[in-house]
Design a protein around this nucleic acid. Structure first.
Length: 492
RNA sequence: CGGGAUGUAGCGUAGCCCGGUUAUCGCGCCUGGUUUGGGACCAGGAGGUCGCAAGUUCGAAUCUUGCCAUCCCGACCA
């Protein structure tokens, strides 16, 4: 099997596709715009999901599950939200097939099985959830309601890309209800921080926390908070969003509660989500021309051990030694695989596990055993060293931590090098075309100007950074006064 | 959804323009052997709805039409 990878310099998009496919994360499917997540990719998602799930629960949330289908009348209740998603909805109109009388063996939609009311396949679940919450919330004592669901959603995208934008994808969506505006805003901010902590600490991808402009805001939200990451090609990627929904959904679905003063009030809402898109961010933030680079904390496999044997008699000796090591690794909670399969030689295995991004590789043969050492190779720097077998699990544990730090620091340095200030339109355009990355610039605060900049350069305002420095200046396009810089970038 | 490209064994491909024996080659796979410190070698072998469906023809991988999927560019997009 040819495992030649396209290089980043030759064709960045193709490089990305090659990593996803040849790295065994996902496959194309027979369904337009939908992909198959393969076991290796799904194991990565499971590790991400499990950690996030723990963090959600640590902040007081519980999981539930709501239906895939949403009656059209519910879907349209919150107008802005419905409008925002209308163009990308899949709709169920019938509930039965029948044999084609004119073409035996083929099926057609039974025209007599038309639904009274069409069902929308959820692009997000606010509608069905708020319709349900109406029945669950009567008093301030029922609040806050802090629920998350792990689910699939469907958005009928015109153009899809593996993990980054597919018609169906996996995600989690948190939907909370609160008695006060302040509490809902605090929740929105808290979950943004949870996302940022997760992405930085576990995925080793540095993010910028910020607030979206009105143009980029979630349909139906009062405010959308986001974390933005930078990819190696200089394009930004929205890695997660957290929305303060105000009372928009409470009013649309008539969700009121009795407060302590015995007065009816509409509840305050938030929603927040991250998706399998994060896997795309992970790939594009760290990987190189040899393949994927997995951050140890969420890598499906942290360590692979490859035996190097000469003749049949040495194999059992190495197997026996490794068996002990594997037990020790597992005792320390290290995800390890011993690949003693006989159908590939060591060199082939080395290349294969580099492609898959396994953080640490251990090779050992008789020569090593005699000297009580192994060859320890790290994926991020490709460095190899000979280390003692004594205390090896601890050595590896420390190395995994070091790799996690290193790839984060590398991504952070790259991100920081690629935030540049622009003080004129010419400079802005030049930076965008020649360097990419985030461009920090003044903007007059209007949607019109933002649209014009987007039309002319394809750059959008990624966010207004949190705790942004206030600074008088002039909008790079219109010259109108501006009180702070915002971050522009071309984005995925 | 518009423009461009692609689809032949698990992967990568030749053949297609100009229709005509048994569809080419490499990798991988299976068997046996030799091997194993950076993508091993020898010998033998298996594997094909030529993306799908109609049509033209004595005859279609090759020509025509429709459809499906993928990639790139655009439009679109929390």
């Amino acid at each position: 099997m040819s495992k030649e990878l396209t290089t980043r310099a030759a064709d960045y998009s193709q490089w990305y596709n090659d990593l996803v496919i040849k790295g065994g994360l996902a496959d194309y499917s027979a369904v337009r715009g939908c992909m198959v997540i393969k076991p290796y990719g799904y194991a990565l998602w499971e590790n991400m999901r499990d950690q996030l799930d723990k963090m959600f629960k640590d902040t007081g949330h519980v999981n539930a599950y709501f239906p895939l289908f949403i009656p059209k009348s519910l879907f349209e209740a919150e107008e802005k939200n419905a409008e925002g998603f209308a163009k990308e909805c899949a709709i169920v109109t019938h509930y039965r097939l029948k044999t084609d009388p004119n073409n035996k063996g083929k099926l057609i939609v039974d025209p007599e099985a038309k639904l009274e009311e069409e069902l929308i396949v959820r692009p997000t679940s606010e509608a069905i959830i708020w319709n349900t919450y109406k029945g669950w919330i009567q008093s301030y004592r029922d609040l806050p309601l802090l629920i998350n669901q792990w689910a699939n959603v469907v958005r009928w995208e015109m153009r899809t890309r593996l993990f980054l934008r597919t018609a169906e994808f996996l995600w989690q969506e948190g939907h909370t209800a609160h008695a006060t505006k302040q509490e809902a805003i605090a929740e929105t901010e808290q979950m943004l921080n949870v996302y940022a902590d997760f992405v930085e600490e576990y995925m080793a991808v540095p993010v910028i926390k910020g607030i979206k402009t009105a143009n980029e805001r979630f349909a139906g939200a009062e405010d959308t908070y986001c974390i933005e990451a930078l990819m190696q090609d200089g394009k930004a990627l929205q890695a997660g969003t957290s929305h303060f929904l105000g009372q928009n959904f409470a009013k649309a679905f008539d969700v009121q509660f009795m407060n302590k003063e015995n007065k009816l009030e509409y509840v305050w809402a938030t929603s927040w989500g991250v998706s399998t898109r994060l896997i795309g961010a992970l790939i594009m933030a760290h990987s190189d021309d040899q393949g994927l680079i997995m951050p140890p904390k969420i890598a499906p496999l942290q360590v692979v051990i490859v035996p190097i044997y000469k003749g049949e008699e040495s194999k059992p000796v190495i197997d026996a030694k490794v068996e002990i090591l594997v037990k020790e690794f597992k005792a320390l909670g290290i995800r390890v695989k011993y690949d003693n399969s006989d159908n590939a030689r060591p060199g082939w295995k080395f290349a294969e596990y580099e492609l898959k991004g396994v953080p640490v590789r251990i090779a050992l043969g008789m020569r090593d055993l005699e000297n009580n050492v192994v060859e320890l190779a790290r994926r991020d720097t490709k460095e190899k060293q000979s280390v003692s077998v004594d205390g090896l699990p601890e050595t590896v544990k420390k190395l995994l931590e070091e790799i996690q730090r290193n790839i984060y620091n590398k991504a952070l340095a790259f991100r920081n090098e690629n935030i540049r200030e622009a003080n004129s339109w010419d400079e802005f355009v030049k930076l965008l075309d020649e360097k990419g990355g985030f461009i920090s610039a003044h903007w007059d605060g209007t949607g019109e100007t933002e649209d014009k900049i987007k039309d002319q350069t394809k750059a959008t305002i990624r966010c207004i950074p949190m705790n942004n420095k206030m600074e008088e200046g002039k909008c790079i396009l219109t010259g109108m006064p501006s009180g702070q810089r915002v971050l522009f970038a071309r984005a995925y």
